[in-house]
C-alpha cells in the first residue's frame, strides 16, 4: 500500500472477517518516559496477530520511537525500536510516519528505521478514512 486512500476501508465493511476491517493505531508518545509506547505497540502486534488490517501512524512525540539505535538496556527496559521491527512479522506493513512531526524535531528519513513518511494531507486522509482508531 503506497498511500492511504479514502475509499479503501469502506468497500469491504459488509463482511465480518477481521482482514476486511481496518484498525489504525495512533502513536503520539515518546518511548520509555511512560508505558504508552510499549503498550501501544503490543496492541498493534495483537491486531496484526488476529488478522486485522492494521495501520500504525507515528506522529508528534511518537516519532521518537523510531529513532535508531536505541540502547534501552541502559535503563533496564525492553527496546522499543526492536519491538517495532516485529510489526511486519505480524503482517503490520502499513507503518506511516508524519513528516511534519519529523521536521519539527529536526529529523529526517535517515534518522528513523521504519515506516513510510507521509505528508500532512495524507495524514488527514488516513485519519478520515479510518473507522476504528486506538489512541496511544
Amino acid at each position: 500500500m503506497d498511500k492511504p486512500s479514502t475509499n479503501e476501508s469502506t468497500e469491504n465493511e459488509s463482511t465480518d472477517k477481521p482482514e476486511d476491517k481496518d484498525i489504525l493505531l495512533v502513536f503520539r508518545h515518546a518511548p520509555y518516559g511512560n508505558a504508552l509506547a510499549r503498550e501501544g505497540l503490543e496492541a498493534a502486534l495483537a491486531c496484526g496477530a488476529m488478522g486485522a488490517k492494521t495501520s500504525v501512524l507515528y506522529i508528534n512525540e511518537g516519532v521518537w520511537q523510531l529513532l535508531e539505535p536505541q540502547n534501552s538496556s541502559a535503563i533496564d527496559c525492553k527496546n522499543q525500536a526492536a519491538m517495532a521491527s516485529a510489526l511486519p512479522l505480524y503482517d503490520v506493513d502499513a507503518i506511516w510516519v508524519d513528516e511534519d512531526s519529523l521536521k519539527q524535531r529536526n529529523l529526517t528519513g535517515a534518522d528513523i528505521n521504519a515506516g513510510k513518511i507521509i505528508n500532512h494531507t495524507h495524514v488527514q486522509t488516513l485519519l478520515a478514512s479510518s473507522k476504528r482508531i486506538l489512541s496511544f
Binding site: P18, I23, A46, M50, A52, R132, L134, S135
Partner: peptide
C-alpha cells in the same frame, strides 16, 4: 484476558473510543 479482546472489541463494536 489478553489483548485479543481489545482487537475483537475494535472489530465488533460500531465505535471505539479511547480515554487516556
Amino acid at each position: 484476558s489478553g489483548l485479543g479482546q481489545l482487537v475483537d472489541a475494535s472489530l465488533s463494536a460500531d465505535r471505539m473510543i479511547t480515554f487516556g
